[in-house]
């Protein structure tokens, strides 16, 4: 059997996903034995022309990490799509925009001001320096995810994808037994299934951020008031964060039946908030707990803001009205 041809690409990414590939340790040797890596900008230094020179569909599978932030990301995603048989959205950013999707809460100008300061320093799309025309790819008005610009065959969630998930993907690849397209390489259930903490699920009586208290290591973090995203997040990572006494931040995205992860978590948390009693006389006490939230988007949409239903920030005049 001919060796499989694989590619690894990063778009708007931090590099963590590329590192995560190596977390499988010696299994990478099996991969290298079974496959040729045709594209890996993180490790080699390919040119656009190298990619263009491949025949359409020549690459068997490309693991694409990072979000779609610039016009270059769009074009490369489209180019890669033509060159590969299977395209994998690898990691949270490719899957759902990831943590950098929170940038959609700011406008492009706000981002530029923050990053580059004075407008004079902002990048120009076209410049001429010493007689050379320079063109920078456009920084898109809104960040999005891979599936928004091309068809995606598989999703490997996680920030970064956990070792056992990557390993499962590699095993399938080496064996030449990729599952049906559309498969998400994670559990179909939520994280709670993998979490060993004890749940009482009585009520949420306070809202705590991780630094505000030392969580009990045995009890459900949500029960203690820490906004653990586990209930609204796919398992597959074996609940490593809660095991390390940190609340889940939701990097694997929601289950297949949920459209908007933040909304699902908001439903759950609001449903559980209370004093233990429900009644007209408890409304004020409930409001006092609800008022302890100061960043709902950052809490419930940490990885899903760009692909949430609202996707970005709006500018209504009375957004703070009641």
């Amino acid at each position: 059997m001919a060796k499989a041809k694989i590619g690894i690409y990063w778009a708007a990414a931090c590099g963590g996903c590329d590192c995560a590939l190596l977390e499988v340790n010696e299994q990478i040797l099996d991969v290298v034995a079974a496959a040729d890596i045709l594209l890996w900008p993180c490790a080699a230094d390919p040119k656009y022309s190298d990619l263009r020179d491949y025949k359409n569909g020549e690459i068997d599978i490309v693991l694409f990490n990072g979000a779609i932030r610039t016009q270059e990301n769009v074009e490369l995603a489209q180019l890669i799509r033509t060159k590969t048989k299977y395209l994998v959205a690898f990691g949270s950013c490719a899957q759902s925009g990831g943590v950098i999707g929170l940038a959609n809460q700011s406008s492009r100008n706000e981002i530029f001001s923050t990053v580059f300061g004075d407008q004079a320093n902002w990048p120009q799309l076209d410049t001429n320096k010493n007689g050379h025309d320079l063109h920078l790819p456009e920084f898109l008005p809104r960040l999005t995810h891979l599936a928004d610009v091309v068809e995606v065959d598989y999703v490997v969630p996680g920030c970064p994808p956990p070792k056992q998930v990557v390993s499962a993907l590699f095993s399938a690849l080496v064996a030449g037994e990729l599952p049906a397209t559309g498969t998400v390489f994670a559990s179909s259930k939520n994280l709670c299934e993998e979490c060993s903490r004890e749940r009482e699920q009585l009520k949420i009586t306070q809202i705590l951020r991780p630094h505000e208290n030392d969580p009990d290591t045995e009890k459900c973090l949500l029960d203690q008031g820490f906004m653990c995203m586990g209930p609204a997040t796919r398992g597959g990572c074996l609940a490593v964060c809660p095991a390390a006494n940190m609340p889940c931040t939701g990097c694997a995205g929601p289950t297949a039946a949920i459209r908007d992860q933040g909304a699902a978590m908001l439903n759950t948390v609001a449903s559980l908030i209370g004093t233990g009693e429900e009644g007209e006389d408890q409304l004020a006490a409930e409001d006092a707990i609800l008022a302890q939230f100061d960043d709902i988007v950052g809490t419930f949409y940490r990885f899903g803001a760009a692909t949430s239903i609202f996707k970005e920030r709006y500018h209504e005049r009375n957004a703070t009205a009641r």
Binding site: Q105, L266, A270, S271, G274, L283, Y314, N318, A319, T320
Partner: peptide, 23 residues
Amino acid sequence: NYKTRRRVVLLKQALSEVGIDPR
């Protein structure tokens, strides 16, 4: 109805955060 009320309180706050008039 109490659960819905709490959801609406949080949702309105979320809408405020994303710049949509919570009304």
